[in-house]
Nucleic acid binder design. Sequence first.
DNA 1: CGCTAATTTGACAACTCTCAATATTCGTGG
DNA 2: CCACGAATATTGAGAGTTGTCAAATTAGCG
Lengths: 236, 236
Amino acid sequence: MNIERKKLSAYLNSISLFSALDLDECELLADSARQVVRKAGQILLHEGETLSYVYILTTGSGACYFLRPGGKKSIIYHIRPDRPFAVEVALMGSRLSGVIEITESATVLSIPVAPIKNFMESNAAFANQVARYAMDSYLRLTDFLKDLSFGAPARLSRFLFRRALEAGTPHGDGISFDLGLRKSALADYLGITPETLSRTFSQLQSEGVISVEGPRIIVSNVRDLVRLSEGFYKED
Amino acid sequence: MNIERKKLSAYLNSISLFSALDLDECELLADSARQVVRKAGQILLHEGETLSYVYILTTGSGACYFLRPGGKKSIIYHIRPDRPFAVEVALMGSRLSGVIEITESATVLSIPVAPIKNFMESNAAFANQVARYAMDSYLRLTDFLKDLSFGAPARLSRFLFRRALEAGTPHGDGISFDLGLRKSALADYLGITPETLSRTFSQLQSEGVISVEGPRIIVSNVRDLVRLSEGFYKED
DNA sequence: CGCTAATTTGACAACTCTCAATATTCGTGG
DNA sequence: CCACGAATATTGAGAGTTGTCAAATTAGCG
């Protein structure tokens, strides 16, 4: 499995968190790493656990959420491939406050935290990288918190705006793009119910901001979309 | 001002973020630090700013919040004395997403970020400290997010429970303590309106969990208080 | 005692969720 | 190519929670 191992260490080295390690160090991590496959819906890590591994998804996606009494899930953050997660909990030895669930079948890489701690002590560049990673996580979470403080129209508008920037093509006066995910998945992502999402789409449509044709969205009034995404209401 | 300077560097050294720096390094920071006094209600930092300083309150307190159109404030985190804040924004060169306001008249210490960056490069122990600080911030924010996902009764119950632990004295079958802050301040702290807080107090009281006599709270049913603070409702 | 600020109470509106019913889409097999 | 069934979306009615506004009450203090 020498090739696999080489690949894995190169992979790790390509992740920004580990890019300050040299290849030998990455190989050491790769050697002690484990790779497992998890299907959509499986729980990877449970609330209150302490962790001795740091995790990365090489494929698939996941989410970290609180499970409220009654079964309601409050999303804390989404997990995309190639960005380590649960790093803070593992390195700080604290307990996971939330559940980590796989949302799309995923390949999960677990890397023991002990050698990572050692590298932090001995390698200042790596320690800086970890600091940068943690600060980045923090800033992302702050932004997420900001998103949460807005209601459904603003959250959807923000999503549509970002999506228009990254995947939009000109269409008459406006911009057209595909959602890129099922509406129920989008509702989940935005932390609202599919019903509310559907109503919010109708609302934006009736206000003339967008038009919706199945998974295809046409933004006809970018100005209003931006205002909405800042939390203003149409009539303000 | 040599004594002041010595004091200031010793103060910095006592802050866990800077405890890995030696006294010379702390003196360098102390030399370039500025100290200003701000009154309650003043805005210290504005939304969208980039920062070239890291801040600490030596006295007083503050809060970081989003100002929603319409004027509603969504608290992101509270600032207590002796814990640096805005560190992530300053070190990462990103924009502050939120406003920082002084809530109790405070002495604000500003420390330039440039020498801190230098120390991070050259001093692995300090870089580790920064990483730990950032991870700790992240975990706090995660906990805060968890709090937010609960409704008013759970948030109040959590507060009362913590307060009972730290300031409670036995009282009959239960525990008695003073709130320690004005109810309007508590409402602010919990991110709800004073009206909702008042109603929630009445509700807990009518359910027989606590009794309220002005600023004095008697918890008569700790078991239910804990259940409530986990998000359960009384009848569950 | 009287004034001001803090707190409580009531009525109501806004928003999102839940549950239930209906409509639409999409893939599969006839 | 069409028909059927399952998954996905939409719509409607109603409930729950918190916020807003206004008024009443209470507490604190000179």
